[in-house]
Design a binder for these strands. Structure first.
Length: 560
DNA sequence: AGAGGTCGCGCC
DNA sequence: AGGGCGCGACCTCT
């Protein structure tokens, strides 16, 4: 059993204590190490336990790890008390634990002052007190509370895996920020120049956008129209006799008018320019690297969010600027139709798993004769997962329910639970937020006598909204767990490959590894083996394949 | 002037 | 259609 090593701030927060902890046994060997010496101490301990790497237990990877990375230290494993507390606090599977039953304390998010940024000049002027000083948080006591909660949980093994995956995610997020995504600013500049003309001086509109703005004004007979103003645009469209409710792409597309083509192109280009234009390049790309902050656990379902630069929304148009360094390659892999595969595995639906044996799951469903075409299969499957209530997807649902009764029943039950106001839980044990107070009150009122018809209708609508959320939650959340296990497994394998190939990007069901060219094939193998391992870690021997689309490329745009 | 809300649209 | 996000721009309110 590997030793736990605890990093604990003392009252002054200037030193840390290292404690060898054998699970619940008494601590031994407490030693106090000044913050400045921590990188060397970590290096020493990691080397001493190379065979069975220690698990560093600390309050918050976001605040601890960057300094270690800057000093050239990589930690093998950790337990992030902040992230794990958040999971255990809300998980139905640990609801009976002392941790879950205790009142909100210093480890709960809203009680802890966020400290994502480096101390700045203004911190000294900020007289708002830290709601919970770090010294009131006792990492050793919290670790014990968390281990107790896991030990007493239903499915403790799954919960343990979730906490390990989440914590490794925190390590990876910090490492990806540290290493950065290779970004060629000259390629990015060329893409922009090609689309809209050279970068204008100051805040002026680039040439192509100015031309399009003129075309729009002419077509709408509105010489002073500002195409960036939705109200202006809406007024002008209505003056042309169109009964439109908004200026959205979807509504404009349906119109028959000369303004449509230039307006849609204008929207596309101005969007690109404002989101990922020259200003973005200036702000986010330095020394050939894009370094967003990844926010582990930033989405309720367990997906990551990002902070800065819109890292998880990089449009296809600029992906060609992601280039491997000379002598390096990008290994790009995404899990094909991850969510339906996850649904097949978690529901134990063997017929759906058989369809997932096909590298293209949707084609597999079509081939099985469930629906006429691949396109129908995709619509139906996404409809089942997202909760389509109308249109083609809803029409296909009965076919899907007949062919894959267990899979459809799983999402239907999740939806019904959400509509009742219940909490739902992913495969590994992350629970959804509770229903809003408003919904609970409304449900209780609607169940009583004398409820007005309008109120009942409104309550049903609200309940169905939440049902769609909980339906999706169990699948999206479990897919996020699979992805985290995939990435954690990959990280471990990459450490065994020469030349330090490293993860540089993660996007829900897709990873990018920056790899020395001569080991790129080994990396590709590691990516595939990791996907298999993730499937086994979550679902054991469930006969579901997790197919990957994988490419070894110089440019991100060349993948997929 | 600044905060907060909404729209619109990029990604999965 | 239907779930989850982030972010910039515009707009309104204070």
């Amino acid at each position: 059993m590997p030793a736990y090593v605890l990093v604990a701030p003392d009252a002054s927060a200037r030193t840390v204590a290292l404690v060898d902890l054998d699970e619940h046994a008494a601590e031994t060997g407490r030693r106090t190490v000044p913050d400045d010496d921590l990188p060397d101490e970590v290096r020493r301990v990691e080397a001493a336990h190379a065979a069975a790497p220690p698990r560093w237990v600390w309050d918050d990877t976001r605040t601890r790890y960057p300094a270690l990375l800057a000093a050239g230290v990589r930690v093998e494993r950790c337990h992030d008390l902040r992230l794990c507390h958040a999971i255990l606090r809300h998980s139905e599977r640990a609801a009976a634990s002392a941790l879950a039953q205790s009142p909100p304390g210093p480890w709960d998010a809203d009680a802890v002052a966020p400290r994502p940024h480096a101390p700045s000049l203004f911190d000294a002027l900020d007289d708002a007190p830290d709601p919970v000083p770090a010294a009131t948080r006792d990492p050793l006591a919290e670790l014990r509370a968390q281990l107790d909660a896991v030990a007493g949980a239903t499915h403790p093994g799954r919960l343990r895996l979730l906490l390990a995956a989440e914590s490794t995610g925190a390590l990876i997020a910090a490492e990806m920020h540290h290493d950065g995504l290779p970004w060629d600013a000259s390629v990015h500049d060329a893409i922009l120049t090609d689309l809209v003309g050279p970068r204008p001086w100051g805040g002026a509109r680039p040439q192509r956008l100015e031309e399009l703005a003129d075309e729009i004004r002419t077509a709408l007979v509105a010489p002073h129209l500002n195409p960036d103003s939705p109200p202006d645009l809406l007024r002008a469209l209505r003056l042309q006799g169109f009964d439109v409710q908004s200026t959205s792409k979807w509504e404009v597309q349906g119109l028959d008018h000369p303004v449509v083509a230039p307006l849609l192109e204008y929207k596309k280009l101005s969007r690109l320019l404002s989101a990922n234009g020259w200003a973005w390049l200036d702000q986010w790309v330095h020394d050939g690297r894009f370094r967003p902050d990844y926010v582990v656990g930033g989405v309720v379902t367990g997906r990551w969010a990002s902070d800065g630069g819109g890292a998880l929304q990089l449009p296809a148009q600029v992906r060609d600027a992601v280039r491997a360094d000379p002598g390096w390659r990008l290994v790009v892999a995404d899990a094909a139709q991850l969510e339906p595969r996850v649904l097949a595995a978690m529901s134990g639906d063997r017929d759906m798993a058989a369809a997932a044996r096909h590298a293209d799951l949707y084609q597999g469903v079509a081939d099985a004769g469930v629906v006429p075409s691949r396109k129908d299969a995709k619509y139906a499957m996404l409809g089942a997962i997202y909760g389509a209530t109308s249109g083609a997807a809803a029409q296909l649902m009965p076919h899907l329910a007949r062919a894959f009764p267990r899979a459809v029943a799983l999402v239907e039950e999740a939806a019904r639970a959400g509509e009742r106001g219940d909490v739902v839980t992913t495969w590994l044990g992350r629970s959804s937020p509770p229903a809003s107070e408003a919904l609970r009150v409304a449900l209780a009122a609607a169940a009583g006598e004398g409820a007005g018809a309008d109120d009942v209708r409104e309550t049903r609508r609200h309940a169905r909204d939440r049902g769609r959320f909980t339906r999706n939650f169990v699948v999206q959340g479990t897919a996020a767990e699979w992805a985290m296990c995939w990435m954690a497994s990959l990280r471990r394998r990459l450490r065994g490959i020469e030349g330090r190939p490293h993860l540089v990007f993660f996007l829900h069901d897709e990873v990018v590894v920056h790899s020395p060219a001569d080991v790129a094939d080994d990396v590709a193998t590691a990516v595939r083996e990791s996907a298999d391992e993730a499937g086994r870690l979550l679902f054991g021997d469930a006969p579901v394949d997790f197919a990957l689309d994988l490419a070894v490329v110089d440019s991100y745009a060349a993948a997929g």
